[in-house]
Design a protein around this nucleic acid. Sequence first.
DNA 1: TGAAAGTTTCTCTATTTACAGAAATAAACG
DNA 2: CGTTTATTTCTGTAAATAGAGAAACTTTCA
Lengths: 175, 175
Amino acid sequence: MKLTPVMEKFILHWGEMGTRWGVNRSVAQIHALLLMSPKPLNAEEICEILSLARSNVSNSMKELSGWGLVKVVHVLGDRRDHFTTLKDAQETFNIIVEERKKREIDPTLAMLKELSLELENDKDADKEVKERINNMLSFLEMMTSWYDKMKKLPNSTLVTLVKAGTTIVKLIGKG
Amino acid sequence: MKLTPVMEKFILHWGEMGTRWGVNRSVAQIHALLLMSPKPLNAEEICEILSLARSNVSNSMKELSGWGLVKVVHVLGDRRDHFTTLKDAQETFNIIVEERKKREIDPTLAMLKELSLELENDKDADKEVKERINNMLSFLEMMTSWYDKMKKLPNSTLVTLVKAGTTIVKLIGKG
DNA sequence: TGAAAGTTTCTCTATTTACAGAAATAAACG
DNA sequence: CGTTTATTTCTGTAAATAGAGAAACTTTCA
């Protein structure tokens, strides 16, 4: 497959952003390539197109699978694995948000719960500290329980809700 | 200042998570320390408590200022800078989300706009690619414009909205 | 204005992470 | 079953990042 200039720009950008999103350049570039590719690609093709080592592609595929972002498919008469990724922006976004929550929020939530419990049975504990820990904990709990509800909704409902954003605020009344 | 076991746990955890959140351990530890500290701390105190080099603290303070997470205050009769951070979870969260959006979303939004424009004036461009770029672009635009509206609301309204999450869905009707 | 106190910038090293290439393993087919 | 093809794991090196300590610079006050 030959990359068009647009594809190349897209892949390079995605690769650079990858580091900010918590994955390395290779992983993000491969994801970008699969997003652009009209058909599933095998590992060898990915190596060639992106000039990456075979092992690097292998490991990156594993990481992308860990994120749930790539699927392995097979082509008739070819025993090699071929890889695709979801092409829908919203689905992709949902997955990334979910995974990042797991990695970036859940451990902190667990830690806060633990500390909150410890502080409860601690008569000498500083009142201010107790208060702040509990403030963080209850804020995060509120946000995550809201998120859990939202993610159960079908995407179409979410779109409706998001588009209705301003209307909702008016309905509920400010404050 | 002497750290209690709870504070220490909190600081160490925050430090570890920092790397996942896109800041280094020192920066995250300092932020955690300021979150727990009952009073503003000067650089020297931070060095001692966290066993960090003076220069490291200085650079970290600069980074935290860049995030808008710390404020410099002065104590009467002391010429040294003293540092505090917002103690409210929601405010802190708002700032972090805003900053991460700037770093993690905005550049991609700009890139997609650019590519979308290029593709528009390109008769030979692959139709599929065009479609995917535009799908991503319009999804991100929808999300960010929703976010821009939400962030204008006072926190209390946001809390109401989040708490009313389920009710809203029922009001709007599924789909 | 110069000594002291405070802060920042610079330089060098240690640590971590990324990634290529080789070796090892596993699967498929004749 | 051995040979070919595909994939993964291992090992070493390069690159990036973090962070200590020294040097340079700035501010404050006597």
